[in-house]
Structures are given as C-alpha cells and as structure tokens.
C-alpha cells in the first residue's frame, strides 16, 4: 500500500507539469491583460502604457514568461497579482475561508440528508416515498442553479418581509427582508447578534448550493444501494435470519457507498474552487469570484495559482478515493 501511494505521488509530478504548461499557454491566448482596463483612459498616456507593459513583462514571449513563472514556483514563490500587487497566496488565503465556510456547510448538509433518503428510497423501491424522492431529486438536478438562486432572492428577500424586524433578534426596524439577498454579514445600521446574523446570511446561499448537490447524491446513493441489494451475499445474509436493519446497514451500505465516495472525493477539490454562480448571485467574496475577476483582468499569476492548487487537489483526492475503496471493499487491493 505504501509503495502504491509513493508511486502515485511520483506520477503526479509530470502530470502537474504538463497541466501547468497547457493551462499557462491557454491563459496567454486570451487577449485580456492586466492593463487593458486602462486602454481608454485619457489620463494615461499611450507611452506610459507601453512603459508599464514592459515593466510588467507582458510583452515577453510565452516561453520566457512561463520559465519566469516556473522558476518562481519551484522556489515556492507563487508570485504577486498583477492587479492588487499582493502575493497570490495572500489573495487565495483571504478568499478560501469564505468559500469553505459556505460550501462545506452546504456539502455536509446535503450529505446528511442525501444518505438516509437514498438508502430508504432504494430499500423501498417503487414505493410512494421512492417516487417522491426521485421526483424531487430530478427537479433539483434539472432546475438551472442560477435561476433557483434568483427565485430564492425574489421570494425571500424581495417579496417576504421579516416579521421579527424590530425585535431583540433583528433590531433593524421594518422593512427588513425575510432573508438577506447577499453578503456575509449585515453592514448597515443595527445589525443582529453576530451569530444570528451569520446564520441569517447563510440560509439562501446554502439552500441554493445544497439543493443541487442533494439531488445528485440521493440518486447515486439509491443506484448504488439497488445494485448491492441484488447481490447473493445480501440474499444469504437475509436467509440466515439477520435482521433487515443489520443487513442493510452493516452489509449493504458499505459497498453501496463506493460510487458515492468517488463522487464526494472528486467534489472536495471543487469546494476549493468555489461556486461561481452562488457567489455571484449572493455577493459572496469567495474563490469563484476571485477566479472570474482574475480571468477577466488577465491576472495570470493568480489564475495559475488557483488552477495549480486545484489540479493538485484533484490528483490528491483521486488517490484518497482509491485508498478509501480498499477500506470499504477488502476485495480491492493495490499491491
């Protein structure tokens, strides 16, 4: 097992290198550059723009730019943003907690609901419960996520008023929306208690994120469970008189969870990337927006930072998923 892990880790190095070359080249094809926002500003002379392009090394040929970047990276220096002039890791470090805070809560919530629902749905296949769960799951998957977010805002933040406005819980006098349409905390006058405020701001974005994930996870859990329930060893376990509860939870669930584990392991790197739609709709200062803004401004050091960390995480969690299989199913061996 240890040898397997070491081999996989060594294999990751050339993979990451190739990814970095491809991603870097693709970013450079994009015509945006960190100075393009200043092109039409008459207060900046064309000579000054040319001088800055030179200073920033924006006109260097691609191989030169790439080797500069790589030279820094191997020394552990991720470079500075071209726009804010702060280190890339500072930029990421500032956004990451916001993103994880939002997406982890949604992620855990989605799992806590999805696992039992998928399980029951499979055990009681074609029951009314199963039909209801399946229908809702399909709805959750097929609704465009940004549309759902906007609907949440219209209903809960525009149309519905907070009935507790002006009370001890929400000191702000009415009119106050049922739930805020964006931001992480109340910025204006008379904010609620910090904890209440945080939860209050989480409700809508978490709902938006969780509904979508929930719908997917329920489907995987149900499908995995249905497959396993048809297996001989389940029938044997039932035949030898084990209680249904024990059969399902001890024998079936562990094996049925394998597909879900894959999905989850691959979703964890996505948590790092942030949810662009949710962050944009709910003004959440997270990774998704950092990535989008950086792409728009051609801020390639930040883009490379995000993409390379994300690629590393994907490779790493793929390995974690493979190792997790071995624990869940002793028949899988890597040696």
């Amino acid at each position: 097992m240890t040898r397997y892990i070491i081999r996989r880790l060594i294999q990751a190095i050339p993979v990451l290198f190739i990814i970095s070359v491809i991603v870097f080249s693709l970013i450079q094809i994009s015509p945006n550059n960190p100075l393009s926002a200043m092109q039409n500003n008459p207060n900046i002379t064309p000579e000054d723009l040319l001088r800055l392009e030179q200073e920033y090394g924006l006109n260097d040929p691609l191989p030169v730019k790439y080797s500069k970047w790589l030279g820094q990276i191997v020394q552990g220096n991720w470079g500075d943003s071209f726009v804010t002039h702060r280190p890339v890791l500072t930029e990421i470090g500032e956004r990451l907690p916001n993103t994880l805070y939002l997406s982890l809560i949604a992620f855990v919530l989605a799992l806590i609901i999805a696992i039992p629902f998928g399980l029951i749905s499979a055990v009681r296949q074609y029951s009314l419960f199963d039909h209801a769960v399946t229908t809702i799951a399909f709805m959750g998957q097929s609704i465009p996520i940004f549309w759902f977010g906007l609907i949440l805002i219209i209903v809960f933040s525009v149309n519905m008023q907070n009935p507790l406005a002006g009370t001890a819980l929400f000191p702000h006098p009415p009119p106050l929306p049922m739930f805020p349409g964006g931001g992480m905390t109340t910025l204006g006058e008379s904010p609620p208690d910090p904890l209440v405020d945080r939860v209050w701001h989480l409700v809508l974005p978490v709902s938006m994120l969780a509904v979508f994930q929930l719908a997917q996870h329920v489907r995987y859990m149900r499908a995995g469970m249905l497959d396993v329930l048809k297996m001989d060893y389940i029938r044997t376990a039932t035949a030898k008189g084990l209680r249904e509860r024990a059969v399902i939870l001890k024998h079936a669930f562990k094996n049925a969870a394998i597909p879900l584990v894959t999905i989850i392991a691959l979703e964890i790197p996505a948590l790092f990337n942030g949810a662009l739609f949710t962050e944009t709709i709910f003004s959440w200062p997270g990774m998704g927006r950092l990535f989008f803004n950086s792409a728009e401004r051609g801020d390639y050091t930040v883009l490379m930072g995000i993409l390379m960390i994300s690629a590393t995480l994907i490779i790493f969690f793929n390995l974690v998923a493979d190792i997790a299989y071995a624990f869940l199913d002793p028949r899988i061996r890597f040696d």
Binding site: L109, V196, V203
Partner: peptide, 9 residues
C-alpha cells in the same frame, strides 16, 4: 433543512 435559521413565524 434548507432553512436552518430560526424560521420566524
């Protein structure tokens, strides 16, 4: 579940 905040009546 989707609205874990103290949902006011």
């Amino acid at each position: 579940a989707c609205q874990p905040a103290p949902t006011p009546v």
